[in-house]
Design a binder for these strands. Structure first.
Length: 305
DNA sequence: CGGGGTCAAGTCTCG
DNA sequence: CGAGACTTGACCCCG
């Protein structure tokens, strides 16, 4: 099992200002254009390599790449960036590491949407796939591009049909082989069971999100939903997302959907081999702490006393 | 250089 | 019915 975390390494961020999400507001992009976007992207990929190598050095075999590495990516093609040759070398170096890289494009991606929304979704998702191409990854769910269905539009079944049609007819083959779905935390959206027909229609595996499931289980036990979800991964080790509840463990006034800073419970995988992305606010720190608390026998209170 | 207002996109839910 | 959240607070201006 690989444990991983998402987008930010707090240790490197605080010690060396290493981050991958340099960006700019729209006005700055209008004023400075692709030239400046290229400079920021170059710094971002350089730092991404440092973060991925840090992960390797610390036995962290899974990492979610931020979607902010290329600022305003929808406004240009990667090969048009003035610094592209150098950027590409960094992407290739990142791809040669042993860390399993995944990504999670933003909530504006609506593959069941229409018009400009749908066009923007195609462009953003293909961008994520292209970055993985430059990293040298064969298209598969080993390097997943994880999204939510993104809305129900008052008609869950019809929305899934539109999603499946757009997936089948409008996406590149590489993207199709990388895209996967995730269960939602809101009652109006999709449980693992509700995503199964979509998986059966178009083959998009389901990343099981423990916390979302706890908020919106749809009649299945955690074990049932977990096992259903991991049964959909046929070309790669299943990925699950984990967080505890901030409201339960850290702040009774927090929203019920808020993620915790740390992990407080042993992550039950029911005997299956899965990879787990920790979606906790303390990032790699919560991962290191979890490993010490729950995975290293010598630190168990029972044995060390 | 620190603090605060502001910031692309869509949809849903909370307050 | 508007603000806040979502995978992630950071940018940018002003004092």
């Amino acid at each position: 099992m690989n444990l991983g975390y998402a987008c930010i390494n707090l240790t490197l961020q605080h010690e060396c200002k290493i981050t991958t999400n340099r960006g700019m507001i729209q006005r700055t992009f209008r004023e400075k254009g692709i030239q400046y976007a290229s400079q920021l992207a170059l710094q971002n990929v350089r730092d991404l390599l440092d973060i991925v190598r840090w992960n390797e050095d610390h036995g962290v075999g899974l990492f979610r790449v931020s979607s902010d590495v290329f600022p305003w990516a929808s406004e240009y093609r990667l090969h048009q960036l003035p610094d592209f040759a150098e950027i590409r070398e960094y992407l290739e170096a990142i791809g040669r590491t042993s860390v399993r890289l995944t990504t999670h494009p933003g909530p504006f991606n609506k593959l069941a949407g229409e018009g400009a929304t749908l066009q923007n979704t195609f462009s953003d998702l293909e961008h994520h796939s292209e970055v993985f191409d430059y990293m040298g990854f064969m298209p598969s769910h080993h390097n997943k591009i994880n999204i939510h269905v993104g809305g129900a539009y008052g008609d869950k079944a019809g929305t899934l049909l539109r999603f499946a049609r757009n997936f089948t007819t409008r996406l590149s083959d590489s993207l199709k082989k990388r895209l996967n779905l995730e269960n939602d935390d809101k009652p109006g959206l999709y449980t693992v069971a509700e995503l199964m027909p979509l998986y059966e229609a178009i083959g998009t595996p389901i990343a099981f999100d423990y916390f979302h499931h706890s908020l919106h289980p749809g009649g299945l036990s955690e074990r049932e939903a977990f096992e259903l979800a991991i049964s959909t991964w046929t070309d790669a080790t299943p990925v699950c997302h984990y967080s505890d509840s901030r409201r339960t463990y850290e702040d009774p006034t927090a929203r019920r959907e808020a993620h915790s800073d740390w992990v407080y419970n042993f992550i039950q995988t029911y005997g299956s081999d899965v990879d787990i992305v920790m979606e906790t606010k303390m990032k790699e720190l919560s991962l290191l702490k979890y490993r010490e608390q729950f995975l290293m026998p010598q630190s168990s209170p029972v044995l060390s006393d």
